[in-house]
Amino acid sequence: MKQGIFTIAENIALTDSVMKMTLVGDVSDITASGQFINILLDGLYLRRPISVFDRDESSVTIIYKVVGKGTEKMKQMTVGETLDILTGLGNGYDLSLSGEKPLLLGGGVGVPPLYLLAKKLIAEGKTPTVVLGFNTKSEIFCEEDFQALGITTVVATADGSYGVKGFVTDAMKTLDYDYFYTCGPEPMLRAIYSAAKTEGQFSFEERMGCGSGACMGCSCKTVTGYKRICKDGPVLRKEEILWEK
């Protein structure tokens, strides 16, 4: 974990409610896809944890949905403004467990962390396929980013307004894969858990306090004991997961 001051290089709308922000600063602690950064905002007490979409040598890009006070404040920020950010948080996806044909399944704002994951898998010589799930055509983002990586990109919309009609699990049925990675809302994760034919990794979301393992605000029960989503997660392997409620 590192603390740094980052400068906004881009903050643009991808859809009505989803924004893309690129931040320039020390990104050396972002070592894995599926990690997140934790952003301090003026006038708000707790930081905002947002997953990493992409990084290069000097910048990190995030994609966030405007859902409350914090993300609304972020949306209003302009190029050149600075933010206090903690980087290198969370375990991230483990690439060493992947097969040759991993399937990447993202739903809504669960899509972004799969982009850096796809790039890393391609760099390791794997052939990923990605399935992006959205409610409707107007909410789709990042399809072209995945297509530009040269990988098979399937879009599913719940209302059938674009691509496969239905959920990512409907698209999943027809695809050939030997491992999977996923991130999205919990109902989607549960559906994938039931439908998946192979092992895989799930990235979870939980309301956090510190985001760095200190407060135990985001604990969950797993097969291998209690885990903190922020520090021991957000990525859990399928065989570790205990569904509650």
């Binding site: 708000l44 007490y45 309301r207 956090m208 985001c218 029960k221």
Partner: peptide
């Protein structure tokens, strides 16, 4: 284990 989540409010 403690309480169920969410455990934090701003």
């Amino acid at each position: 284990f403690g309480n169920p989540t969410p455990r934090i409010a701003e």
